[in-house]
Design a protein around this nucleic acid. Structure first.
Length: 347
DNA sequence: AAGTCTATCAACCGCTATTAC
DNA sequence: AGTAATAGCGGTTGATAGACT
């Protein structure tokens, strides 16, 4: 393994390709195929490394590459695929004919990611951002003052919306008797708070609503069962421990997995847990990754009244401004995976 | 008109996965 | 089975064009 020797500094040219170089590369590949990328530059008369040639060919010169602005259908597909695959750009590109992984990656980083952030959506988890919540007002509330043995997630009723890291931070801070509210206020000030669409788009819900968020949808279950058992009700929660061990250790699937699901609309769920939102992510704990479970909530549900097909053009008008795309984007996030996405392909 | 800022995207870097021996 | 070569991937950088002051 290790680095490819072709990347060594051996006088090979770097930087932008000239039309002459492009022509040489295209001519050679059309005649001989690319064969071994390592030997190609020498055979083609190019002062480039094989890696550079491969990149130029796959990202720019390949005849089947579609150039130009991404359509709404493509953008919709990217968002949907990214919610399942994470930053697996090549896997996403494989499902968008004519688009390269590099192009999709660039488009994501320069357009879609920014738009999601503006909407208060975490582009990594595709869930609302905790940093839009007001921590200091939370801490000054009477509920907090009643008990220091606070189960923060229960208190908030917002566990499904939370970033585990921030939950952990909040737990640590709240469990500290010397808690400095100023510290939290500073934390909050650094969190770019804004008027969030989250409140209306993703209303918080109680454990009761989570217990059976959609009639007819079975509750979740552990990794050995297709669905987990019903959630504990309020009185069943351990009184003097937080539920954050689920996030911290994450050795087994949380028993209350429905906490990780956000109903994104009246017919689909969304995972708030990064490891669930991005099941193929290398960061997800393999032990906690039950493939059957992970995709079940993300996929179409029986209660779905009107699936939105990937290629549907009726969903969005052909607007072109960023604001219009923002608006359309919020709809995209309420997606339901169309049947043409066979999730087994991603496994 | 000139300078500065911002957005875009082609290309590179460094790493892992796969293949060949 | 072990090692080296190669292919491929994802993150990042830097050049450049266009917008803005």
């Amino acid at each position: 393994m290790g680095r490819s020797p072709c990347c060594e500094k051996n006088g090979l040219k770097k930087g932008p390709w000239t039309p002459e170089e492009d022509q040489k590369l295209m001519d050679y590949i059309q005649k001989h195929g690319h064969g071994s990328w390592r030997t190609l530059p020498k055979n083609a008369g190019l002062q480039r490394c094989g890696k550079s040639c491969r990149l130029r060919w796959t990202n720019y010169l390949r005849p089947d590459i579609k150039r130009g602005r991404f359509s709404f259908e493509e953008e919709e597909a990217i968002i949907q695929l990214h919610s399942i695959l994470g930053n697996k750009w090549s896997a996403i590109a494989a499902r968008l004919p004519g688009r390269t992984d590099n192009e999709i990656k660039n488009y994501w980083n320069t357009h879609i990611r920014k738009r999601l952030l503006r909407m208060g959506i975490d582009p990594v988890t595709h869930s609302p951002r905790l940093d839009l919540l007001d921590l200091s007002s939370l801490l000054s509330s009477p509920l907090y003052n009643q008990s220091h043995n606070l189960n923060v997630s229960r208190f908030l009723g917002l566990q499904p919306l939370m970033n585990p890291e921030l939950l952990r931070l909040a737990t640590t801070l709240l469990s500290d008797n010397n808690l400095d509210l100023h510290l939290l206020q500073n934390l909050q000030e650094n969190n770019q708070l804004c008027n969030s669409p989250v409140q209306t788009q993703f209303p918080s819900f109680t454990s009761n609503s989570l217990q059976n968020p959609i009639p007819g949808i079975p509750a979740c279950t552990t990794s050995t069962d297709p669905y987990p058992p019903p959630l504990l009700n309020e009185t069943q929660f351990p009184s003097n421990e937080t539920s954050f061990s689920v996030w911290q250790d994450n050795v087994d699937l949380p028993c209350n997995l429905t906490d990780n699901l956000i109903p994104m609309s009246n017919y689909s769920y969304y995972s708030a847990d990064q490891s669930l939102a991005n099941p193929l992510s290398e960061y997800s704990n393999p032990q906690s990754t039950n493939q059957n479970f992970i995709f079940a909530p993300v996929l179409s549900t029986p209660s779905s009244p009107s699936p939105t097909p990937l290629n549907s053009s009726s969903t969005y008008i052909n607007s072109s401004t960023e604001d219009e795309r923002d608006s359309n984007c919020s709809n995209m996030l309420k997606f339901e995976l169309p049947y043409i996405f066979d999730v087994n392909e991603f496994m």
